[in-house]
Computed example of a mutant assay.
Amino acid sequence: MSSGQQARAQAAAITPGSTPPDQERPPAERLLALFDGRRLSPGQRRIAQYLVDHLTEAAFLSITELAERVGVSQPSVTRFAVSLGFSGYPALRDVLQPIALSAVAGTPGTPGPADPREQLRQNGLQAAVDAEIENLESVRRLLADTHQVLEIGRELAGSVPLTVLGLRISASLAEYFAYAARRIHPDVRLVTRGGSVAYDALLQARAAGGTCVLAFAMPRHAHESLAALRAARAAGLRVVLITDPTVGPLVEEADVVLTAGTGSRLVFDSYAAPGMLSAALLQAMADADPERTQARLEQYEQAADQHGFFL
């Protein structure tokens, strides 16, 4: 079997499902299937996005030309191909070229697109939304156990102060949760910096009577996130962790783990599922102490009206 045949067989092996046959699938689906389920770095996603946007040209470029077009190094292109399960860029290109040719020719039985690259781009964005819908479905199944969610809500509501931790890309999720939680909780402390700053904040929260920390850890997982979780446990805080569905050292340092998948089909991750899970936990916190929740919400609305916070 030639290297090209081996590469094509390899691509078929990582393509989900067996029907319809790979050669009968639309070119956009065949291309996106190469990336499906792969955890790519932002730099690798730039390469993937370039292939989606310029497939009919990119599939015939040398590794040097592709690296120059994308603005990355040649080793980065090689690592990208290997991350997809290929032996190197030549094997990946052997698979890309037939897909590119079929995109130009049009899929049998359907009108050929005026611009195949535009079809690929549109389908890629739709596929990203579809993947997020699947992530939300997973969260929906997780929330079927209302007892677990309410118990976690009570634990978070009862921790005064409550520490909310999120570093690097996870900081935005932590900020959202802390912003909303302050409306219904008397003392919420947000930690978005790692190292000794995080350690100090965790020690102070425990000394002030806090019992729990809610941590967000989305990929790519940072060493400083792991260090912060270990510091929280060493300080005597229980760790509730919201993360993506992976098993690793972060999970081992948590007392409670709730998983929510991140959308990884675009250059940067999307967080519809973690955001929905956060909102569900906020609801559980509100329900855990309804009298306190109502009183604090009324106080906030009075302050908002008095100071004209909103239009």
Score class of each variant (00 low, 15 high):
residue 116 P to S: 06
residue 173 L to P: 00
residue 99 I to D: 12
residue 305 D to R: 13
residue 130 D to T: 01
residue 266 L to C: 10
residue 304 A to E: 12
residue 172 S to W: 02
residue 20 P to H: 00
residue 81 A to E: 12
residue 310 F to K: 05
residue 207 A to K: 10
residue 190 L to R: 15
residue 142 L to F: 02
residue 19 T to C: 04
residue 151 E to P: 01
residue 10 Q to K: 14
residue 213 V to I: 07
residue 137 E to A: 08
residue 171 A to C: 03
residue 2 S to P: 15
residue 307 H to M: 08
residue 57 E to D: 11
residue 141 R to F: 04
residue 142 L to N: 01
residue 137 E to T: 11
residue 82 V to A: 14
residue 144 A to P: 01
residue 179 Y to Q: 15
residue 86 F to M: 10
residue 163 T to K: 00
residue 20 P to A: 06
residue 204 Q to C: 09
residue 147 H to D: 14
residue 110 T to S: 11
residue 160 V to H: 07
residue 144 A to Q: 13
residue 70 V to E: 03
residue 38 R to M: 01
residue 233 R to T: 11
residue 254 A to E: 06
residue 208 A to W: 08
residue 78 T to F: 12
residue 124 G to M: 05
residue 254 A to T: 02
residue 120 L to N: 02
residue 200 D to W: 02
residue 185 H to T: 15
residue 178 A to L: 06
residue 15 T to I: 05
residue 97 Q to D: 04
residue 274 P to S: 05
residue 230 R to G: 13
residue 62 S to Y: 11
residue 213 V to T: 11
residue 103 A to Q: 10
residue 247 V to W: 14
residue 56 T to K: 01
residue 40 L to T: 01
residue 279 A to F: 00
residue 222 A to S: 01
residue 115 D to N: 15
residue 7 A to K: 11
residue 197 V to L: 13
residue 208 A to F: 12
residue 44 Q to R: 12
residue 45 R to T: 09
residue 240 V to C: 13
residue 167 L to S: 10
residue 153 G to Q: 11
residue 185 H to D: 02
residue 238 R to I: 15
residue 245 P to A: 05
residue 88 G to N: 11
residue 210 G to R: 05
residue 225 S to M: 13
residue 65 E to M: 03
residue 153 G to N: 08
residue 131 A to D: 10
residue 9 A to M: 07
residue 244 D to H: 00
residue 75 P to R: 12
residue 72 V to W: 12
residue 242 I to Y: 01
residue 149 V to R: 11
residue 34 L to I: 05
residue 82 V to H: 10
residue 73 S to V: 04
residue 129 V to F: 05
residue 88 G to C: 09
residue 297 L to H: 08
residue 89 Y to M: 11
residue 286 A to H: 08
residue 246 T to A: 08
residue 85 G to R: 07
residue 14 I to N: 09
residue 59 A to R: 00
residue 89 Y to P: 02
residue 280 A to L: 05
residue 287 D to W: 14
residue 191 V to C: 10
residue 160 V to S: 06
residue 267 V to W: 07
residue 162 L to S: 06
residue 177 F to H: 13
residue 306 Q to G: 03
residue 159 S to Y: 07
residue 74 Q to S: 07
residue 156 L to T: 13
residue 248 G to L: 03
residue 32 L to A: 06
residue 255 D to C: 04
residue 234 A to C: 09
residue 172 S to C: 04
residue 80 F to W: 12
residue 64 T to L: 03
residue 158 G to W: 15
residue 102 S to D: 13
residue 196 S to K: 14
residue 228 A to E: 07
residue 304 A to F: 03
residue 179 Y to R: 14
residue 14 I to D: 12
residue 238 R to G: 06
residue 207 A to I: 00
residue 157 A to G: 05
residue 145 D to A: 04
residue 27 P to E: 13
residue 195 G to A: 12
residue 123 N to I: 12
residue 219 P to T: 15
residue 175 E to W: 01
residue 147 H to P: 02
residue 172 S to H: 07
residue 122 Q to A: 15
residue 34 L to G: 01
residue 120 L to I: 04
residue 279 A to D: 03
residue 12 A to Q: 14
residue 266 L to S: 15
residue 196 S to N: 09
residue 20 P to V: 08
residue 36 D to E: 13
residue 311 L to S: 09
residue 22 D to R: 14
residue 165 L to A: 10
residue 189 R to K: 06
residue 128 A to D: 00
residue 185 H to W: 02
residue 87 S to N: 13
residue 224 E to K: 06
residue 233 R to M: 08
residue 61 L to F: 08
residue 221 H to I: 00
residue 228 A to M: 07
residue 32 L to V: 01
residue 296 R to W: 03
residue 59 A to N: 14
residue 272 A to T: 00
